[in-house]
Design a protein around this nucleic acid. Structure first.
Length: 468
RNA sequence: GCUCCCUUCGUCUAGCGGUCUAGGACGCCGCCCUCUCAAGGCGGAAACACGAGUUCGAGUCUCGUAGGGAGCGCCA
């Protein structure tokens, strides 16, 4: 039977980087085994769920290419169904109304803590004889009082829970709306989910959910609980550690396949392989290689993975991304060399598309000012005659190709009896405003003849002004 | 406090009783290449949390200790 997995975020904020890994694993597992992956929006908390959050989640998943076979399914659309199941449970005496007030519950918890026990509901309404009219009751699930629940987790192995440790959890609020632990069971059952892949902050909920499946007469799915992702300092991953919102990674110029690759490797391995194509991820992923311990998010390695993918990405993808990034920065991509050229020149020296765009600026518009350190080091009075030679030779050059321009630079160096670096570096600073760029021939092509001449003049003015 | 989980270089990890003087990757350091920056190549420093036990033999199995994490909501 092909597996059916699901990703079930609650729309109370942006799409978190940790959630994305969960989604990725669920998606990959379905793809790997020829199954289906379903997206379900868990919006039963109407106080906190927002449309903006739903959009952010949808946009994020769309950007990453984690396409769902079914959904998005909204839980708020299924209230009728939950009501139906709830009534059935009530009729079958597998759930009951609880008339305890919040004050009573609080006192109960405090007392349990005092006795050194786990704070839990003591089941005082379980027998159904505390009915009263002045309190809108909640509905609680009748958890078995004894015995144990065995969870054979696909990543953590066997975990045994004692039913005596579990209390009767609320499955419907006093306003009648269902709660998470109930809707998740009804949905996973109705949607015939075979593998629940989720964060391991849910392990402690699992035994109660399994009990509910049994109460419903449905075989529980298999579970795979993924360890958490921590920040570089080992603490819970938060904004302090950089972006946790996936959409920010798009803005920062990360490739979706790179982010996926990094997240995939954070907690899963395939021998020594670090870089995976989308195709390889789908072919190679499986739950048995998922690590059991929490991992720390390392932004430096993400950068490296992104760079690897930039080097491997199809040119069209990079051109599209660079165009978008330049436009976002107010630079007109049409006012310089073809983007293909720029991409090929910069892809090996860019860790992000944002970085690539910053390096590309000077090929599309005048650079603001010379980098001070670079100018001081290379635009010295001794460079003057070299720049003059270059100005003259370039002015007479018609074949503005990489090889032809490169030859001009070499000839000037020979003519003056200096090393290539003594010519290329001042020229590079003149052309780009800084001391680092692609090879000098490529840089000349990117800048173009007209701008080259202008910028050499500009550099000469700088040298002169400096000499005084 | 109670329940559950986790523990190999700083970080991600390989390791599924002998092949481990513990391998790879990021980062770091050095060298090479070189017109700069990258990329690439070569080399280096860097780890089995601790203690018992099982076994001829333990990073690998068991138990304890320590440390870390999660959960204990009319949140999901």
């Amino acid at each position: 039977m092909p597996p059916r997995t699901r990703f079930a975020p609650s729309p109370t904020g942006y799409l978190h980087i940790g959630s994305v890994r969960t989604a990725l694993y669920a998606w990959l597992y379905a793809r790997r085994h020829g199954g289906e992956y379903i997206l379900r929006i868990e919006d039963t908390d109407r106080e906190r769920s927002t449309q903006e959050a739903v959009d952010a989640i949808l946009n994020g998943l769309d950007w990453l290419g984690l396409d769902a076979d079914e959904g998005p399914i909204y839980q708020t659309q299924r209230f009728g169904r939950y009501r139906e199941v709830l009534d059935r449970l009530l009729e079958q005496d597998k759930a009951y109304r609880c008339y305890c007030t919040r004050e009573e519950i609080d006192a109960m918890r405090a007392a349990a803590m005092d006795k050194g026990e786990k704070p839990r509901y003591d089941g005082r309404c379980r027998s159904g004889d505390r009915v009263r009219g002045d309190v809108e009751p909640v509905v609680r699930f009748k958890n078995p009082l004894s015995g144990e629940v065995v969870l054979d987790d696909l990543v953590k192995g066997r975990i045994v829970f004692d039913n005596a440790e579990l209390d009767d959890l609320i499955i419907a609020r006093s306003d009648g709306t269902p709660t998470y632990n109930f809707t998740v069971v009804v949905d996973d059952a109705d949607m015939r989910i075979t593998h629940v892949i989720r964060g391991d902050d849910h392990v402690n909920n699992t035994p109660r959910q399994i009990n509910m499946f049994r109460a419903l007469g449905v075989e529980p799915p298999a579970y795979a609980h993924l360890p958490m992702i921590h920040g570089p300092d080992g603490a819970k991953l938060s904004k302090r550690h950089g972006a946790v919102n996936v959409l920010e990674y798009r803005a920062m110029g990360f490739l979706p396949q790179a982010l996926l690759n990094y997240l995939l490797r954070l907690g899963w391995s395939h021998g020594d392989q670090e870089i995976f194509t989308l195709e390889e991820m789908q072919r190679l992923f499986d739950l048995d290689k998922v690590s059991r311990s929490a991992a720390s998010f390392d932004p430096m390695k993400l950068l490296w993975v992104n760079q690897q993918h930039i080097q491997a990405a199809p040119e069209e993808q990079l051109v599209g991304l660079l165009r978008g990034q330049l436009e976002a920065q107010g630079v007109d991509p049409a006012s310089g060399p073809p983007l293909e050229l720029t991409v090929e020149a910069l892809r090996e020296r860019s860790q992000t598309i944002l970085e690539m765009a910053e390096q590309a600026h000077c090929y599309y518009e005048e650079y603001e000012e010379l980098d001070e350190k670079s100018a001081k080091a290379h635009l010295r009075p001794v460079a003057r005659e070299v720049l003059v030679d270059l100005r003259e030779a370039f002015g007479a050059l018609d074949d503005w190709s990489e090889s032809a321009t490169q030859q001009v630079v070499e000839r000037v160096a020979e003519g003056r009896g200096v090393k290539l670096g003594k010519v290329a570096q001042p020229l590079r600073v003149a052309l780009t405003g800084r001391a680092a760029s692609p090879g000098i021939g490529v840089t000349l092509v990117l800048v173009g003849k007209a701008r080259t001449l202008e910028r050499i003049d500009r550099a000469l003015r700088y040298v002169d002004s400096r000499g005084q």
